[in-house]
């Protein structure tokens, strides 16, 4: 049963990665690793900033 659960978690994690659901986690990791002294953006602010930046730099979606 544990293996099934782990498999499901792995799949959900993968799908989340493809969708970009882990973007905030990666931002925090980057923030920590790069040794910034200022506090990181909060989760709410990070996602706001992320979608707002897409307003000015749109990404194409293919046919």
């Amino acid at each position: 049963m544990n293996a099934v659960l782990a498999g499901f978690r792995g799949f959900a994690g993968y799908l989340g990665g493809v969708l970009g659901a882990d973007a905030y986690k990666k931002y925090l990791e980057h923030h920590e690793a790069s040794g910034h002294t200022s506090p990181p953006l909060t989760e709410r602010d990070f996602w706001r900033d992320r979608t707002d930046r897409q307003d000015t730099s749109p990404q194409g979606r293919c046919c």
């Binding site: 990665g17 990666k26 980057h30 979606r61």
Partner: peptide
């Protein structure tokens, strides 16, 4: 250029799915 936002090292398997989802569509 890592900035934690646009330039982020991404696991190759995840990026494969991500890139595929971006190129595949109705065409």
């Amino acid at each position: 250029k890592a900035d934690g936002k646009d330039y982020v090292r991404t696991d190759r398997n995840v990026l494969f799915g991500h890139h595929f989802a971006a190129i595949a569509g109705a065409g």
